[in-house]
């Protein structure tokens, strides 16, 4: 709680810089307009104009906020909450691809980690490639995955989810390998003195002690998953989803729309990481680990 004041200060500073930069960046266009209309701009006029342009170089926070409200809350009130113009619809499209990819990535990552921990051959041959795969900017493949899967008749949610899966499985593998190996020799010996089978050792010792590692990786994984879903929406040509809103906004120079999609994506990321944090706290508490 003692961090609230410093955080507020930083956030206020960011907002102040944002408003000031908006004046600086949008001023040329404001002067341009004034010159053509043959009027002299006073300082207050200038500020008012730069903070309310239709296609500003940098929209100010309240413009973005009102755009977000117009495309979410206001549309819900008028009963069109799920229409194609509403950000709720686009967020839902991105969110479902993110969650599907995240779930697939978590399952795949956990299975791979179990294989790596229990099989020396896999540890030797697969683990280095898992690590190398992340130094490769794999997002470059995204357009190709979309097009190829489209060509074999798979379209819609799954191709995007595949990209999310690829981005989110890595943190899970690395975290789970570490977690499944975290019980020390003493604990493993204890299991052996109880004559525990391999399966029992896994379910009662290794898996429970890997939970803190799992949740730490899940938080990284879901953020990466969202990035994957957004990038996956770019090559399909701006149909639906937050990535499509970004692309459409950049085609037509709708900066306010880009920023509102961006902030919505940020809120979505924060929300998902927050939910995982909550599940983590509850689970670890019930397991007696926190």
């Amino acid at each position: 709680m003692r961090n609230v004041l410093p955080i507020l200060t930083i956030v206020l500073a960011i907002l102040a810089i944002w408003y000031a930069s908006a004046i600086a960046l949008n001023a040329p266009w404001a002067y341009d307009k004034a010159k053509r209309a043959n009027i002299e701009l006073s300082a207050t006029d200038l500020v008012r104009d730069t903070w309310s342009q239709k296609k500003p170089k940098l929209p100010v926070p309240h413009q973005v906020a009102s755009e977000i409200w117009d495309t979410t809350g206001a549309m819900v009130l008028s009963g069109r909450g799920f229409s194609k113009r509403s950000l709720i619809y686009h967020s839902w499209v991105t969110f479902s691809a993110t969650i599907l990819g995240f779930a697939l990535g978590t399952v795949l990552g956990t299975l791979l980690a179990v294989g790596i921990v229990y099989n020396r051959t896999m540890d030797l041959s697969v683990m280095p490639w898992v690590i190398t795969s992340q130094t490769v900017p794999i997002i470059a493949i995204a357009p190709m995955i979309i097009v190829v899967l489209n060509a074999v008749g798979i379209s819609g949610l799954l191709p995007k989810a595949m990209i999310s899966m690829y981005l989110s499985f890595f943190p899970v593998v690395v975290g789970m390998v570490k977690g499944l190996r975290s019980p020390d020799a003493m604990q493993l010996d204890q299991m052996r003195t109880w004559n525990a089978s391999a399966a029992q050792t896994f379910w009662r010792l290794r898996l429970p002690s890997s939970m803190p590692y799992l949740f730490a990786s899940l938080k990284v994984g879901i953020a990466a998953s969202l990035v994957g879903a957004i990038v996956g929406e770019l090559p399909t040509g701006a149909v639906a989803g937050l990535g499509a809103r970004l692309l459409a906004g950049s085609y037509y120079g709708q900066t306010v729309q880009i920023w509102s999609a961006l902030l919505t994506a940020a809120a979505l990321a924060a929300l998902m990481v927050g939910v995982i944090g909550l599940i983590q706290r509850v689970t670890l508490k019930r397991m007696g680990m926190a």
Binding site: I7, T9, V11, I230, L242
Partner: peptide
């Protein structure tokens, strides 16, 4: 400042910053 910037910075590091690309290209 450090106490304030560290949480904000970690928060920003988790955001889909890549979305800024169209704006910066503009």
């Amino acid at each position: 400042l450090k106490r304030g910037l560290l949480p904000v910075g970690s928060f920003m590091a988790a955001l889909p910053i890549i979305g800024l690309a169209p704006i910066l290209v503009m």
